[in-house]
Amino acid sequence: MMQLAVRPEPLLNVDNLVVEYGLGNKTVHAVSGVSFEVARGETLGLVGESGCGKSTLGRAVLQLRRARSGRVMFDGQDLTAMEGEALRKMRRRVQLIFQDPIASLNPRRRIGDIVAEPLIIAGVKDAAERKRRVHEVLVAVGLDPDIVAGRLPHEFSGGQCQRICIARSLVLNPEFIVCDEPVSALDVSIRAQILNLLEEMKARFGLTLLFIAHDLAVVKAVSDRVAVMYLGRLCEVGPSEQLFARPAHPYTDLLLRAIPVPDPDVRPAESVATGEPPSPIAPPSGCRFRTRCPRADQQCSAQIPELREVAIGQFAACHHPRA
């Protein structure tokens, strides 16, 4: 296939985003200067280990958590500068799907009302119109509205609850959805159903996705490009196939080799990983990965590595990337 020379104007452009939490008199450096963009119609996968700041980043993009500094440009407008009514209007165009589908549904409300709620908040007054929309999205996610609309969340399994959450996120016809670990809480045999559904919805409704997960294979299955995060910073971003085939950053490499492969002929690499991630309260100077990195040297503790292009479309933040 021919490589397009010009990338289309990104739908989302995140520039140098910093998000912190206060913890007593300490500061949790959850997201520290993260920049990336997502083209219209693209899925960007975001992977990293627990506590590295994925959810914080996702929430900050949607302005559910305000950034300390940096910009989030969505369709040419700076969300970080928006407030009140303008922000509320904008929020209809962006949605969030959570990891725990059961907990994110109000246990006392009927499915039909749960899915209709965003419409009410958005001021859709016509009840028939609301009913039509709810019907449409429930069918789209593979549920029978006549059967499910009148029921309560506890009557459904985790996988079905995630379908309901997806329906709710689609009801306002959004352009962009942050999926925060949407299949992590689901059983293996159910995950593929939901991943397929997300792909189908994306194609059908022309969605752009930020897909967060800690499972690399899951991320790769749905993402055009993948961003790897470690302790509040991006290590590497690139086209999925390329990044998995030739990781340039030592952390990406480590992650890839640590995954247990369901094939007995692939012997697990003996202890590829050493040590544990440091605390985001006191991240290491220079490169945040240096305390676990086999390639670390003097420069790595002295200087923060910036994201630089190491191959076409592939960027790594490392002083000694693999060529």
């Binding site: 293996v188 991943l195 792909e199 690399l216 492969v261």
Partner: peptide, 11 residues
């Protein structure tokens, strides 16, 4: 049903 590391995106 398990996505594998060598599964191509969007299959």
């Amino acid at each position: 049903a398990i996505p594998k590391l060598d599964t191509a995106p969007h299959t």
